[in-house]
Amino acid sequence: MKPAPFDLVAANDMSEALEALHQGGTEARVIAGGQSLVPMLNMRLASPTTLVDITRIPELSRIEANTDRINIGAAVRQSTLERWPDLADRLPLVHAALPWVAHTQLRNRGTICGSVAHADPSAELPLCLIALGGTVTLRRRRKTREVAARDFFQGMMSTDLAPGEMIVSVSFPARKSSTGYAFREVARRHGDFAIVACAATARPDGTATLTVGGVADTPRTLELPADRADLDDRLNEFAWHLQARDDLHATARYRRDLVRKLGRETLKEALPCRD
């Protein structure tokens, strides 16, 4: 099928984009890489009357590395970040997760912020943003605000984004020395959405986090104390707490099993000299 008709605004700068989004209200949408939006348009799951293409706004195509944060503009493509020479050193979790996002042919167009805006419960990038405690910067005509990732994602494909508003950048806290990071995923085939994806961080004081995507309607985090004698029980309780459902790709039971086993392995990898 083909998309329903829409006006297309090819914004040259932020004020053009924000004005068009403001005018279009709930009927307007941003188009970035189009890798999730165009399938939805083609299947007529979405029929906005205005699309605002933001990919040619120069200030949105920057990767800004500060001492403790990496800010990624809304036009930065997934493959551009993948090739950023400092990625493995500054954002080891994202470095490990990015190759799992779709296929090269899709990462060449898809943006980091577009994946965050789309908020698929199985998507790797929202998972990483939550696991690292990142933030999302949103802008509308007269207001800019920064929201913690864990508050931005509100449900399956539903976020805190308001009508007339767009994501201008996301911000990932950079690697801290002596913190360990690990990412693991199980999918039907490489490049498919995750059945279960796990991201672990292990801090120098011994505490750790495990964030799991693909099970609940948003990625969820389990905080773990330094003493992990009862790790199996905690993982089991967490697996049930996520309220997995049966679907085409996997049963709820298989998902719970993956949370327990893959979760344990991911934590172990993040903590090379412990456990």
């Binding site: 297309l8 090819a10 188009i31 189009g34 890798q35 165009v38 399938p39 083609n42 699309l51 293409d53 990919t55 493959s79 090269t104 042919q105 899709l106 060449n108 167009r109």
Partner: peptide, 18 residues
């Protein structure tokens, strides 16, 4: 799949204008 500025990409997921 076509190449856009040397990189492979899905032509069905690009608006002509892009």
């Amino acid at each position: 799949t076509v190449q856009v500025d040397g990189e492979p990409a899905r032509a069905c997921l690009m608006l002509a204008r892009q």
